[in-house]
Write a protein that binds this DNA or RNA. Structure first.
Lengths: 122, 122
DNA sequence: TTGTTCCATAACCAGAAGGTAATATAAATA
DNA sequence: TATTTATATTACCTTCTGGTTATGGAACAA
């Protein structure tokens, strides 16, 4: 028995969000939250070919969301949620903006009477 | 002055995560966190054509992350972070899995000695 | 050894994504 | 009215994505 692919790369938000953008992959992650699963086990409930699932797993793996093991002929997948924390970290920087969504429309109407204001981007 | 596109659609995680998967779009969102901006203002710092930015804005709009206004010839974009909350909600369901990332490798090694366990998917 | 199970890989395809340049449109300005 | 400004739209191109079938290889089982 072995383990491959040590030292998962630092979370790449591009890859992480892209991986999460597919419903099949999110379902796979949810499934893996209940325990490791082989490719075959994952392929069953989704009416999809086995190679398709292998592809999805590879996308999840490159995003660091899944690690693979080796167990006889199987290559069990295990959830690695750390990149999700990175995604949340990024999203949290916007937290201020969804607490005050009340009079947001009023704000918009108001702000547009003046000219558009400040700001220099990345 | 007017406002268009009322009643933003309920957050679609597919669209939200896909929108977030592009670094230009994340940069646009960060920029908008500092204040509304017109298309031209957004296009400047990114060395990209104006139509490209318009496309990105449309993706963000469909994901509900941005609302557009009308101010004379301008169509200022405003951040709407609510869909981010939905994204976080989904991600938070995995929170258990990134607190215990210590001996995760050991866990993996251990679990693979037995057969793969339980679980029935979506 | 032979077959079977589990998975990966290759080749292929249609459609979506991300970019461009060129053009059209709408509102402000001269 | 003519021009300029701000944005959208169109047409086009290339690359990526998500799926397929077919095939190959490794490990177990008979």
């Amino acid at each position: 028995m072995e383990q491959i692919g040590y030292a998962p790369p630092p979370p790449n938000l591009d890859a992480v969000f892209a991986a999460l953008a597919d419903p099949t992959r999110r379902a796979i992650l949810s499934r893996l939250a209940q325990g490791d699963a082989s490719v075959g086990e994952l392929a069953l409930p989704f009416k999809m070919s086995q190679p398709a699932v292998s592809k999805h797993l590879k996308v999840l793996e490159k995003a660091g969301l899944v690690q693979r093991g080796i167990d006889k002929q199987r290559r069990p997948a295990r959830l690695n949620a750390e990149p999700m924390a990175a995604a949340i970290d990024w999203l949290e920087t916007f937290r201020d903006f969804w607490s005050s969504s009340f009079d947001q429309l009023d704000d918009l109407l108001e702000s547009l009477k003046k000219q558009t204001p400040e700001g220099d981007p990345p």
